[in-house]
C-alpha cells in the first residue's frame, strides 16, 4: 500500500510542479515582451470570469423572467403562441384577477394552509428538538426517522396519503388507514378526499400532510441551534434555582430566536407556494367533484396561476397568470416585511 501510495503522490507532485512551472515560464515570457497584462488580471476582471457561469444563468432564468412577468401583466390580449398582444392596461388584469371568485377561493385556501400548518409545525418541531436534545441514547435513530420526509418525493408521499385517507361509510372493505383507526375508536368512517367529501375533511388531510412534511427541516435546524447554546447559561440558571420550563422560556427560546425567525419566514413563504401536495392528495385539478356537497374547491393561489398558464393559448389569459403571480409576490412581501419588523424587536442575536 505504501509503495503505490508514494508513487501516486510522486506523479501528482510532478504534474503540479510542471503545471506551475509552465505558468511561470509563460508569465516570464510575456513579461519580457511587456504583454503580462494577458495573464495578470485585475481583480474585477477575474471576478467577472468567476461569476459569468452563475450570473448568466441567473440573468436568463431569474432576472429577465421577473422583469418580463411584470410586462406581461400589463398587456391585454397577449397570446403566447403568436407572441403579440393587443394593448396595455395598467391595472385591468389585476382587477380582473382580484374579482374572480376562484381567486378569492384560492386566497382563502392558501391562507388556511399558512395560518394553521406553519404555527403547528413550528411549535411541534420545537418541542421535538428540545426532546431530542435532552436524550442521549437513540438520538441518532430518532433523528434519522424524523428527517425521512425531507428526502422523499412529495408526489409519492402525497399519493400514499391519498391512499391512507380513502374510503367512505358504505364500502367497509375499502377503508384507508385513517378510517380504519376511526372505526377502532368507535367512530364512523368519513369521506376524507373522495367523492362526497366535505371541505374541511379534505383540507385536514392537506394540513396533516403539510405538517408531516415540514417537521423534518425545522427539527434539524432547531436542534442544531439548541445544541449550539453554551451549557454555561443553563448552569448559571440552575444555580439561581430556575425550573426546567423557566430555563426553556428564558434561555432556550431567546437564544434560538434567530433560527425560529428564519424558519418562520421561510415556512410562510413556502406555505404560500403550496401546490404539488394538493396535486398529489386531491388530483390535478384541485377539485373534488361530488354529488351531495357540490364541487369542493381546494385550489391554492399557485394552482390558480398554473390553471391560467395552461390556458395560455387563449388571448389575454396569460396576463391573468402574471398578475396573479405578482399579487402572490406582493402578499409574501408584505408578510415578510411585517415579520422582519416584529423580528427587529423580538429577536436577539
Amino acid at each position: 500500500m505504501n509503495k503505490q501510495d508514494s508513487r501516486l503522490k510522486q506523479m501528482i507532485w510532478v504534474f503540479r510542479s510542471k503545471l506551475h512551472h509552465t505558468g511561470v515560464v509563460i508569465d516570464n515570457f510575456l513579461s519580457k515582451l511587456g504583454l503580462q497584462f494577458i495573464v495578470r488580471w485585475p481583480a474585477w476582471l477575474k471576478a467577472i470570469f468567476y461569476l459569468i457561469p452563475a450570473l448568466s444563468l441567473l440573468m436568463i432564468f431569474t432576472f429577465y423572467p421577473i422583469f418580463n412577468s411584470f410586462l406581461i401583466s400589463f398587456y391585454t390580449g397577449y397570446n403566447i403562441q403568436r407572441g403579440d398582444f393587443d394593448g396595455y392596461t395598467l391595472f385591468g388584469n389585476y382587477q380582473t384577477v382580484l374579482s374572480h371568485a376562484n381567486f378569492g377561493r384560492a386566497i382563502f385556501n392558501t391562507s388556511m394552509i399558512v395560518l394553521i400548518s406553519v404555527p403547528v409545525t413550528i411549535f411541534v418541531g420545537l418541542m421535538i428538538a428540545v426532546a431530542l436534545n435532552a436524550i442521549k441514547p437513540l438520538r441518532g435513530f430518532y433523528q434519522s426517522i424524523f428527517f425521512l420526509p425531507y428526502v422523499t418525493n412529495s408526489i409519492a408521499i402525497g399519493l400514499v396519503f391519498a391512499f391512507m385517507f380513502k374510503g367512505n361509510v358504505n364500502d367497509l372493505t375499502n377503508l384507508g388507514l385513517a378510517n380504519q383507526l376511526l372505526t377502532w375508536i368507535g367512530l364512523k368512517p368519513i369521506v376524507w378526499i373522495g367523492v362526497g367529501a366535505t371541505y374541511w375533511s379534505a383540507m385536514s388531510v392537506i394540513l396533516i400532510y403539510s405538517v408531516w412534511n415540514g417537521l423534518a427541516f425545522k427539527i434539524i435546524v432547531f436542534l442544531a441551534g439548541i445544541q449550539g447554546i453554551d451549557k454555561q447559561y443553563y448552569q448559571a440558571a440552575q444555580i439561581d434555582g430556575a425550573s426546567r420550563s423557566k430555563s426553556f422560556y428564558r434561555i432556550t427560546v431567546p437564544m434560538i430566536s434567530p433560527m425560529i425567525f428564519y424558519i418562520l419566514i421561510t415556512s410562510v413563504i413556502g406555505a404560500f407556494k403550496t401546490y404539488s401536495s394538493v396535486v398529489a392528495i386531491i388530483n390535478r385539478e384541485g377539485l373534488i367533484t361530488t354529488g351531495a356537497n357540490g364541487t369542493i374547491n381546494l385550489k391554492t393561489i399557485v394552482f390558480y396561476i398554473y390553471d391560467y398558464i395552461g390556458l395560455a393559448s387563449q388571448d389575454g389569459l396569460m396576463s391573468y397568470a402574471s398578475a396573479a403571480a405578482i399579487i402572490l409576490f406582493g402578499i409574501i412581501l408584505v408578510f415578510t416585511v411585517l415579520q422582519l419588523q416584529v423580528g427587529k424587536r423580538r429577536v436577539h442575536y
Partner: peptide, 11 residues
C-alpha cells in the same frame, strides 16, 4: 516547494 520546481525526492 511545489512552486519551486523541485523534484519529488528532493522535496
Amino acid at each position: 516547494l511545489e512552486n519551486l520546481n523541485v523534484s519529488f525526492k528532493q522535496a
